[in-house]
Amino acid sequence: MTSEAKIQKNLGKPIPVPGTEEKVSDLVIVHDPNKCTGCGQCMIGCAYKHYKTFDRKFGLLYVNESPDRKGFYVNANCQHCVYPMCLASCPKEAIFKDEQSIVRISPMLCVGCGTCNQACPIAIPRLDEERKIYVKCDFCDGEYPMCFQMCSPGALQLLPRKEAFELVKKLRGGK
């Protein structure tokens, strides 16, 4: 969290994507691995918010040590894409974009086939073993996301799409 700066805490109206008929959430969470300490508090906060447990395995985002670099932690969290691959791949049409453009899985329609997990480039949807359905980040229903609130080193940033894109570009060395 960039503590000194005032931040927008809740999702606003979805923004149109130029050149398409699609809309996308105005805010997105981006991870800066250079700042991440691997504390796991984001996963724990998420797990408590959604499952009332501190077991990080219940979290809906994932932080792991990079296999290529010691002490460097990488993350996977849902970007609520413009064209979500999970949504496109679902054979039961259980995945949809809501009015805030949060990409959601309907627990009533999901049959737990796992196609969404296979289709997502970063394998975000995971199996809820008790309910035998797939679950994913719901952006805390558009409210101040718990993972972001939990992050002391400021590795997770809650940014408007454009700023997030610039940050990711910078993190990738301008590409």
Binding site: T37, C39, G40, I44, D55, R56, R69, K70, G71, Y73
Partner: peptide, 23 residues
Amino acid sequence: TPYDKTCCGLLLYFSDSNQSILD
């Protein structure tokens, strides 16, 4: 060292004591 930035693991201890200590 590469692990200077790494968390001590205290925050993870509630969740996964093994990973918190060993990892």
